[in-house]
Nucleic acid binder design. Structure first.
Lengths: 252, 252
DNA sequence: CGAATCTTTGAACTGAGTCAATTAAAGTGG
DNA sequence: CCACTTTAATTGACTCAGTTCAAAGATTCG
């Protein structure tokens, strides 16, 4: 909203996108969706560091990430930023606010990014008329739910390097899905953001990166991380928490 | 396990429920939903300890909890059970599996419980024909997403008692919504389940309960917990993680 | 009543948080 | 374009809370 400099448009890219685009970005087959060609939504561009939604704001629209990276977070009373997720192409922002019409989490761009603006009224009408769009939303919610599970899994690990290894592997997997090189990670977020997501101090993130690098599993250069030894990382990501009384499959 | 042959029905309660029931259980206004009287779904009864869905199983239906308590969890390769949530009345199970048609998480009853079985085909048809049901699903997903955020918040806390305090307060709040006495908690889950959800060892849960009890904030008797001093608990739940460089509100 | 699970408590060890100080990078403005 | 400021990242030292291992009660259930 308002004119934050380049605001709406940007040269070389459309100011609006169609329903077919939405399907494509969220990784759904879009062939037989000719009807969705006539549905369109505005595209909003964000510069690095620009907030898209603030916590607690009335939910006026959902957003589907078209490009870039956003961080999704809550700010505690004491000012601590709890990062919930990083949003990449295809992710839908604002779903966690549908139930009470307020944004439960804030979202800020970590690099130049663009999103489709799904104004609530129109979007809900669109989902009613186009089951594929309803499906898109359900799918997005489902994916996010599953990803939250993975995040929980991360934080459940005892050792900080284990959490970090899991995080890196998950990011790699997501990049692969988006057809980026899966073992060349360009971290768009600060160490502190990662630390928050993993539930450790940012110093621990630093140290853990060092440890994994020393072990030859990754190579770290500023915010560029190469996954050198993926097998090793996979091995490292085991061990959630000691559970000596683990597998008790009853013997028929 | 054991007598799975009682399966569907149980004396004294209907074998099916209507769309209006679904709305009611999930806390949505159900007055003007006369059309939903004709939509009905089977009810399934579960005994304590009975699994409802297993991890990885093909998603054949969603479930809406009608009564009781379920635990939602994943079992790691090493046999560790990572608890994701506890489901109470109104919660929908299986949403995290919609995106790939497999159950991402398992669900097991912690006490005698009942759920509405929303067989996928029929349910999806129903949501298409009845926007209120579509809304119910979106709302359920949204609520669960928001609740996952709270869980993240819990695990981000440094001290174990803080995590526990938050957990107890959240459970209390949910009970209040369901019109149960908010400061008389009957924990349906084991200490270990709680520990898993909070990301600590079960010994720590035991100790933390002791600490909070010693401080006079709660009273513990086996699995009955009374919230004696709610203010105190609220005070205890602060302090996520030191962040001396916290509030940086830019002043324009 | 006995077997299994759950829960509590104890003791020792260790990994991660906190505090602190230094270096590196990025952003700002003249 | 370069000083200057601010923020990000790394590294070290110290301390302590929580994990781990162990073992003893308590409760449940067959």
């Amino acid at each position: 909203m308002t004119t934050t400099q380049t605001d709406g448009l940007q040269d070389g890219d459309a100011a609006r996108c169609t329903g077919v685009d939405l399907l494509r970005w969220s990784g759904m087959p879009a062939e037989e969706a000719t009807a969705l060609r006539d549905v369109s939504f505005p595209v909003k561009w964000l510069s690095a560091g620009q907030p898209l939604v603030v916590q607690g704001a009335p939910l006026e629209s959902l957003y589907l990430v078209r490009s870039g990276t956003l961080k999704v977070f809550q700010t505690e009373r004491d000012g601590y930023e709890q990062v919930h997720a990083f949003a990449l192409r295809g992710d839908v922002l604002g779903l966690d606010g549908l139930h009470d019409e307020r944004h439960a989490t804030a979202a800020t761009a970590l690099e130049p990014s663009s999103v489709a603006v799904l104004a609530l009224r129109e979007w809900q009408r669109a989902t009613r008329e186009h089951p594929l769009l309803a499906r898109l939303q359900a799918r997005a919610a489902s994916l996010e739910l599953a990803r939250r599970g993975a995040t929980l899994h991360n934080m459940a690990a005892v050792a900080a390097e284990v959490r970090l290894a899991r995080f890196l592997l998950q990011l790699s997997a997501r990049q692969a899905l988006l057809e980026f090189p899966p073992r060349k990670l360009r971290l768009r977020m600060s160490r502190r953001d990662i630390a928050s997501l993993l539930g450790v101090s940012h110093e621990s993130v630093s140290r853990s990166l060092g440890i994994l690098a020393t072990e030859g599993l990754i190579r770290v250069n500023h915010r560029e991380v190469d996954l050198v030894d993926e097998r090793g990382l996979l091995a490292r990501q085991s061990a959630t928490r000691a559970e000596r009384d683990a597998p008790r499959l009853m013997s028929h």
